[in-house]
Design a protein around this nucleic acid. Structure first.
Length: 809
RNA sequence: GCGGAUAUGGCGGAACUGGCAGACGCGCAGGACUUAGAAUCCUGUGGGAGACCGUGCAGGUUCGAUUCCUGUUAUCCGCACCA
């Protein structure tokens, strides 16, 4: 078959017939399949795109044949750093390169032959999209979920931009890998922490990989404990520590403040001042990068000040150390060396007292002891278990107003400002009189100007563009300037799935009724690397929009699948520097897109991925050849002779129904490799039947028809061609998926293994209807079994129907 | 360091709830067709001559373990002192 010719032909026909456009009339049967949209960085699709989109499209086609109305949109996450970096390097404007790249990618995506509904395409860099990204910002602002604060942020000196904590990898910029330093800037934040608890709770109800749920759970990092108030000796100042081990409060021998803690300056004694100031300075300079270091020795400095332990009135020295983070909890910890590894090391180094207050149940006297046990040296609480003591101590402190129960989250607010050009401008105007004023909704979009000097020099590129910056205050009408920053691209991608079903709506971001009908996404497929960022942000935005009344659902993605990673032939991640990059184009040119897609489905476990291997792709070409041959052969049989339904027909019919059952189940579960394995077996079975002299042609034609239908989702153009050769006028994708006949799966005779002391010794044939007693009888009277038994006493016989018989002697 | 995942023939990978390990394919070997080769088709293919041995390693539970439990090693991914 001339794959390339038929692929072109059917793609044109499908497009003409609008086969892939969502039909609103059938919204009750809707099924929203979404693949993560692509970043238009390079002109060509890489294997990763194919691996994400090809097999998932087959899943969508399978669902379509199962009677669902499929909505499978496609678009581009078009803002972002790479286009801007490319522009800095080449001088080509990000808008020009991006639009060109999108066009090229659209073409190759079409050549893939997927069921993308292009009538709802999204490009996040177009004003008709980012207008609504800005609208989203304004809604969050109105709701108090967007706010500004000065914060020490990660600054990438190479990209000249601020990075979110999540984008800093081992102290390095996620994209360019240069070392990240600290800098103070006033930034916009989204208050995702308001939703920490709900984001955590919501995970339980999601059909997501457990691994991903665990990662999000970890990221949110809920920690249940309490706060304890420590007053300074002088009685003037006080601070709270957060602890999960309130039970060990009698063992406190010192407390530690984060060096950045505001109290540090105030309480440090004159004598200690030089040391403390030096330490604070050093910490500020090297902070995160140094703090990330693995084998770093714990350091700290005594402030000279003391506070009072509220439970026993003891004087406790106050230290500072960089192992305490100002951004987590209260920025202070209590040091209990006897029951915490870090505190133990710290106390030993600085010769601080170590007091045991928990006795372990195992009787070991080693310190530090971090396990649970029974309290000692804790006055009234002695004898309580740790858990009882935690409650009792915090309750008692709460009564005295010196502490109480407290839950902490590791999750931090989402920093959305970027000092970058290629992004959606933040819709805020700064007025000297009125402060930060949101742009009125009717003035959206705040358009990104084209003529801008975007070469990095530490200032936002937009800040250098006067025509953009200078404007009037929407409140007082006086002179004002625009916010020079743009939004993190994760903001664009945190709501795109809401826009797709109503992508051409110019009056609102989406119609609420439409959104409520079309969402949530029924199957979302994309890389696991987005587990904690994109997937968490999208959930947050969805929940926030629900609270504002724009949506009636809480979760954007009901069911999630991560495809694996296709590695280079050498088993390493594909990269230009390694020279192990596989180009889909070469294979598609040689074999066509169906064969390439099918190989991706067959050669790997979908969620695992693995190293690329050339050999297998030929086998798929061979397989499709075999399918074509048998289909045309059988189609050519003129006499529709119906012979009796004998043993051979029953046999083939069994394989046929077993195949339908297995392939159906496997497609549903994204187990594409096994689905194709079953189809290969089925083809072999038909070939075998075809060698018979006398054939039931009508039956055989039915078998072949099912074969084409089953293979259609996996090789769409190929199957469509065969389907039309078979004389069908309607598209194969408008035909129902085959169903199986349970009765055909009941075999007259089943082969069972007979084990002797759990070792297989013989095979027996039993009637399909036989019960356990009959099976046992047949097994024990079998010639080979008797021989193997050799007259030994049978103790027990275990019969597992349909599987085996185990005779214990 | 913590958390998660994975480990099965020469290779990619199967095995539903604890029930015949290695489906399907690649590769390899032999055969058919052919002047010859390619292509195609057929047969065989975990190891061992054999009884038997085999799912990273060492134990355990069970009539029975790739599957469950305990310990351990290696690799990959995520997080980075979270109080």
């Amino acid at each position: 078959m001339d794959y390339k010719a038929i692929e072109k032909k059917w793609q044109a026909k499908w497009e003409k017939d609008k086969l892939h456009n969502f039909d609103k009339k059938n919204v009750d049967k809707k099924f929203y399949v979404l693949e993560m949209f692509s970043y238009p960085s390079a002109a060509k699709l890489h294997v990763g795109h194919w691996y994400n989109y090809g097999p998932t499209d087959s899943y969508a086609r399978y669902k379509k044949m199962k009677g669902f109305e499929i909505f499978q949109p496609m678009g581009f996450d078009a803002f972002g750093l790479p286009a801007e970096n490319y522009a800095i390097k080449t001088g080509i404007h990000p808008q020009d390169s991006t639009i060109k790249n999108i066009e090229l990618m659209e073409n190759t995506l079409r050549e893939m032959g997927a069921m993308f509904d292009w009538s709802n395409e999204i490009k996040t860099c177009m004003p008709d999209y980012y207008k609504w990204t800005q609208w989203l910002f304004l809604q969050l602002y109105k709701k108090g979920l967007a706010y500004r604060k000065e914060a020490p942020v990660n600054w990438c000196p190479d990209c000249q931009t601020v990075l979110a904590n999540e984008q800093v990898i081992q102290g390095q910029c996620e994209r360019c890998h240069s070392t990240v330093i600290q800098k103070n800037l006033t930034q916009w934040f989204f208050k995702i922490t308001d939703y920490a608890e709900e984001l955590l709770q919501g995970l339980d109800g999601l059909d997501w990989p457990e691994k991903t749920k665990a990662m999000q759970k970890n990221w949110i990092g809920k920690s249940v404990g309490g706060e304890i108030l420590f007053r300074l000796e002088n009685g003037e100042d006080e601070f709270k520590v957060f602890t999960t081990r309130a039970d060990t409060v009698y063992g406190v021998s010192y407390v530690v403040l984060a060096p950045e803690h505001p109290l540090v300056k105030k309480i440090t004694t004159k004598k200690q001042q030089p040391l403390v100031e030096k330490y604070v300075e050093d910490t500020a300079k090297t902070k995160e990068i140094e703090r990330l270091s693995l084998d770093r020795e714990k350091t700290g400095v005594f402030t000279g000040a003391y506070c009072i332990n509220p439970v026993n009135g003891k004087k406790v020295p106050i230290w500072i150390s960089d192992y305490v983070l100002y951004s987590y909890g209260t920025g202070c910890v209590m040091g209990v060396p006897a029951h915490d590894e870090r505190d133990y090391v710290f106390a030993q180094k600085y010769d601080l007292p170590i007091t045991r207050v928990v006795k372990g149940t195992t009787g070991s006297d080693n310190l530090p002891y971090v396990g649970d046990g029974v309290l000692v040296n804790s006055v009234d609480y002695d004898g309580l278990t740790c858990e009882e003591a935690r409650k009792a101590i915090l309750c008692d402190l709460a009564v005295k107003n010196e502490g109480g129960f407290k839950v902490n989250y590791r999750l931090r607010d989402w920093l959305v400002s970027r000092q970058r050009y290629w992004g959606a401008p933040i819709p805020v105007i700064h007025c000297e009189k009125c402060g930060a004023v949101p742009v009125p909704e009717q003035d959206l979009p705040v358009k990104l100007p084209y003529n801008v000097e975007f070469k990095p020099d530490g200032k936002s590129p937009l800040a250098k563009c006067d025509e953009f910056m200078n404007t009037k205050c929407p409140i007082c009408g006086g002179k004002a300037t625009r916010d020079p920053d743009t939004l993190d691209t994760f903001v664009c991608s945190s709501w795109y799935f809401l826009r797709y079903p109503d992508a051409n709506n110019s009056k609102e971001p989406w119609n609420k009724e439409t959104a409520n009908k079309m969402l949530p996404v029924d199957k979302y497929v994309g890389g696991a690397e987005h587990a904690c960022m994109h997937l968490l942000y999208s959930r947050f935005i969805t929940k926030a929009l629900r609270d504002m009344g724009y949506l009636d659902f809480d979760e954007p993605f009901k069911s999630l699948v991560h495809q694996g990673v296709i590695l280079g032939p050498d088993g390493n991640r594909m990269s230009k520097s390694r020279g192990n990059v596989i180009s889909p184009d070469d294979y598609v040119k040689e074999y066509g897109s169906d064969i390439f897609r099918m190989y991706l489905m067959f050669g790997f476990s979908y969620t695992e991925g693995g190293p690329w291997n050339d050999g297998g792709i030929k086998s798929i070409a061979k397989f499709l050849d075999r399918v074509e041959k048998i289909v045309t052969t059988v189609n050519g049989y003129k006499n529709n002779k119906v012979t009796a339904f004998e043993r051979d027909e029953k046999e083939l019919n069994y394989v046929r129904n077993y195949t339908i059952k297995s392939v159906d189940r496997d497609m549903e579960a994204f187990s594409f490799n096994t689905a194709l394995a079953r189809l290969m077996e089925y083809v072999s079975a038909i070939y075998k039947y075809d060698t018979k002299e006398v054939k039931n042609v009508a039956f055989m034609k039915d078998c072949v028809k099912d074969l084409v239908l089953l293979i259609a989702p996996c090789a769409p153009h190929f199957a469509e061609e065969l389907w039309s050769i078979m004389g069908n006028k309607k598209s194969v994708f408008l035909t129902s998926y085959p169903t199986f006949d349970e009765s055909a799966l009941q075999k007259d005779e089943i082969e069972l293994a007979v084990q002797l002391n759990s070792k297989v010794k013989a095979k027996i044939m039993v009637p399909g209807s036989a019960d356990s007693q009959e099976i046992e009888k047949i097994a024990l009277s079998d010639e080979n079994v008797i021989k193997a038994l050799d007259g030994k006493q049978v103790k027990k016989v275990i019969v597992i129907k349909g599987r085996l018989v185990n005779i214990i002697v």
